[in-house]
Design a protein around this nucleic acid. Structure first.
Lengths: 240, 240
DNA sequence: GGCGCCCGACAAACTTTGTCACAAAAAACC
DNA sequence: GGTTTTTTGTGACAAAGTTTGTCGGGCGCC
């Protein structure tokens, strides 16, 4: 990936979030933050995260159980952070599926080195790590999107070929129906990169998708434009 | 083997992983690391490993039971590492099927010597190591791939001859259906070597495979291209 | 109703992939 | 042991896919 990886920091201490966030930003990463599990889930559904820094001690649901939940549904690499440096936590963290473990206090140099190491490792298996696994199908309007076969089927049986870019964008939309998604978000979700000022690539891709799946591309019913906001995927989607 | 062997280090101590990793890389090996059994299995499914360095003491599933499991399903050579230098472990390790045994602390010179010895030994009996896989068949689309006979059979009874390279690539794909595999991964899985910058050999081989097993090689349904990502084997595969 | 900004469309520039021809390497054959 | 045949890798070029630039029209705001 030639674009900056997107790191999510989950920690209830604002000072830590700010400190780490600044260090990572300076290093060129894109950074999001969350103070607890609920906020974490929100960020995960709004953007594509390449790695999570997860504090062990959190209010409400603690880091370990979050880690286990995350592992159950995705392969996003996790680095555990913890104040206690004892062996027990370390072992538990790795058992829960963390990819690495870093005891506080840590220096930013070390943190960055660890992050890069974990990212490098997880990139050896690039797309395998991305979408939640089991073969699925989505149904909406008169369409069926087969995730295993990367195919778009119309109710009358016709198979519409989708390019990789169209497919990735459609998945991002279909998995977040009835929500306004900004171009930035879509670019992040579908391509894993940030937008630069005059970025029209999402517009172009939406236009191509509409041409393929709208009955009247001039009056779109499925992917609607939200003026000044982005796009919204309006049909109800059923997962199978 | 004219290409660098790929060694997997399984140890929960980061410092050991890093140290050994550095020593082996300097020696010209390709290296992957894993902190526990889960990570180990992930690496094994994503790449072709020529030898495993397995720590006896691991969080969760311990080294001995991992060793036994590994032996049950593959013949990858294993060198056991252990902190306790007593005789008992050594005997147990070898009984579990390890190919060699190395007590910590060990020097990198000694480690490398043992690795080379084990690799040499396992290459002396290359086919013995391979054919112990019980004869299998894979079915997909209208094809049947007979692993024992290295034959590709179409439902109408026609046998399609496959070259060694085509066969190896097809096996790599068939064993990882519905997953995007990068060219690097495929090269590693099918040829056991790393890619150099302008490597088009996988493209060519995929093209040749498509010509043989797709109905319309111009619009492939079985091996799909993921633009910027690699290839994906889309049919559901059943093992017999 | 006019103004400025956002969006859609199209084309140009660029990147990635497919395939061909041929050379190199490996295997088979005599 | 040398020659023929088959298979595999490589570079070139065409085709497909994606991003960027530009322009005109439409939308909201005043």
């Amino acid at each position: 990936m030639h674009s900056a990886p997107h790191i999510l920091i989950v920690d209830d201490h604002r000072d830590i979030r700010d400190l780490v966030s600044r260090a990572l930003t300076k290093e060129g990463f894109r950074v999001s933050v969350a103070a607890d599990g609920r906020a974490m889930r929100k960020v995960l559904s709004d953007s594509r995260i390449d790695l999570i820094l997860l504090d062990l001690m959190l209010p409400g649901e603690d880091g370990l159980s979050l880690c286990r939940t995350l592992r159950a549904e995705s392969n996003i690499p996790i680095i555990m952070l913890t104040a206690k440096g004892d062996e027990v936590d370390r072992v538990i963290g790795l058992e829960m599926g963390a990819d690495d473990y870093l005891p506080k206090p840590f220096g930013s140099r070390e943190l960055i080195a660890r992050i890069k190491a974990v990212l490098r490792r997880s990139q050896d298996s690039p797309l395998a790590a991305r979408s939640s696994e089991r073969a699925k199908q989505y149904r909406f309007d008169r369409w069926r999107l087969d995730v295993g076969a990367r195919e778009l089927l119309r109710d009358d049986g016709v198979t519409l070929p989708l390019s990789t870019g169209e497919y990735d964008l459609l998945i991002a939309l279909v998995e977040r129906p009835q929500r306004v998604l900004s171009r930035d978000q879509l670019l992040d979700l579908a391509r894993g990169r940030a937008a630069n000022a005059l970025d029209r690539s999402i517009d172009t891709q939406v236009s191509r998708l509409r041409r393929k799946l709208e009955q009247d591309p001039g009056d779109p019913k499925i992917i609607k434009t939200v003026w000044g906001g982005g796009y919204m995927f309006t049909p109800t989607v059923s997962r199978e």
